[in-house]
Design a binder for these strands. Sequence first.
DNA 1: CGGCGGTCCTGTCAGC
DNA 2: TGCTGACAGGACCGCC
Length: 274
Amino acid sequence: MPELPEVETVCRGLALHLPGKKIMQVILRRKDLRLPLPLHMEKILKGRVVQHISRRAKYILLHLDGGHVLIVHLGMSGAMVLKERPPETYRTHDHVALIFKDGTTAIFHDPRRFGLMLLATEKTLPSHKLFSHLGPEPLDKSWGVTQLCAILQSSKAPVKSVIMDQQKLVGVGNIYACEALFLAGVHPTRPANIVTKNEATKLAKAIKQVLNAAIESGGSTLRDYVRSSGDAGYFQHHFKVYGRQKLPCLICKKTILVIRQSGRSTFFCAHCQK
DNA sequence: CGGCGGTCCTGTCAGC
DNA sequence: TGCTGACAGGACCGCC
């Protein structure tokens, strides 16, 4: 899926076009996403005006008038693409379309249906089941080495699993976990609680750096991720370890390895990461 | 309780 | 060419 940078890129695209626009029509082509679409979603959304767009973790939030919030998660394969006009025909896996008064159409497309769309209100959002357990945002000014040290010390799990744990720290998925650990020179299988202060300092910096760089590049496009414009992101060209198994490390030239950790592929350089 | 593995679903690609 | 199995950016749930 889209990790934090991809979701942030989508939000920025939506924020450019949707605020102030009124939803005139809601097309539900398929309701069984990861969770079923809310009952009466159509009725609640129709006539609402988009106030602003925000992001929390990997969730896109469309803030509507009347205090309603449309929550969108892209899962592994989801996209929110904007069109200037409603399309003549929809593609397979275009599950929901929001048609605005000026014709602008936002299409939620998600082949694997791991994504979701839910409704909440500004009041209920913080205590919403999906949101109440989320950890801090790594790009917040208030997040840094102190916060990272605290979560690392509290767990013996592999450091990679810990930085991917959305309860401890949001937004870091498989790609950016691999990349950040490489940048910091930390071996992904190290028990989190034996990572030193010095290494944690590098890792906190690496996490911010790689997420910010990816946002700058419009995210990473591997298979089906696209920005709201429909364009691909470019950060995949900057990967230093992700997907580079058997290729030489860009720093030391030794071979990049791939292992499985909790069912996910981990790419790393055994020489540069200790 | 923490941590891991299985699971949801479809598409794609490598290998036979 | 065609089939089969493995794997893919996430995250919930249940089991140990």
